[in-house]
């Protein structure tokens, strides 16, 4: 019987921890969670706070996450940590900026082109490039 479980803590920008542990302690949305091997499958959001991993020898490793997701599977515990502070109003502001940038881009639109036309132009440019390539090869010989 094993009394350890595999734990992966990852964020979008780096792998933070990967290894076996006897217990994982994290702050879930509904409160503190202590998860030991053979816990039932569970998925929850994490609150900003510490994630403690208790290793086999009793050693504790502490990580800080600014939110994220905790998933418990029979063989593995996964913590998907957020890298940025997130809030719905922040997200909304970012979305507004993205929309505005697109509108600005459209306001400066010079002349609109048909898809067919653009396709033809691209194909033409590619053909020219290929012709140049061939020409160059022939020149070498």
């Amino acid at each position: 019987m094993t009394n350890t479980i595999r734990v992966d803590i990852v964020s979008a920008e780096a792998e933070i921890f990967s290894g076996d542990a006897t217990m994982v302690i994290a702050t879930g949305e509904l409160g503190e969670l202590g998860i030991t091997p053979r816990h039932a499958p569970l998925i929850t959001r994490l609150k900003p706070g510490h994630v403690d991993v208790v290793l086999d020898g009793g050693e504790r490793q502490q990580f800080y996450v600014s939110g994220g997701i905790l998933e418990v599977q029979p063989q593995v515990i996964t913590v998907l940590a957020d890298t940025a502070a997130r809030a719905s109003d922040l997200d909304e502001a970012a979305a507004q900026r993205a929309k505005k940038e697109a509108e600005d881009a459209l306001a400066h639109r010079t002349e609109a082109v048909d898809i067919a036309e653009a396709q033809a132009k691209l194909a033409e440019a590619m053909a020219q490039l290929q012709a140049l390539e061939r020409l160059r090869k022939n020149l070498k010989h």
Binding site: A84, D91, A95, R97, A98, A102, E111, D114
Partner: peptide
């Protein structure tokens, strides 16, 4: 922005050499 019949609904540029997830949240949310 030059292609007819395609609606450009959101955009972001200048992510730089170290793109951050935050820079992309806006366009994804749109």
């Amino acid at each position: 922005r030059r292609i007819k019949g395609v609606n450009l609904i959101g955009s972001v540029s200048h992510l730089g050499e170290k793109p951050k997830l935050e820079q992309l949240i806006g366009v994804i949310k749109v």
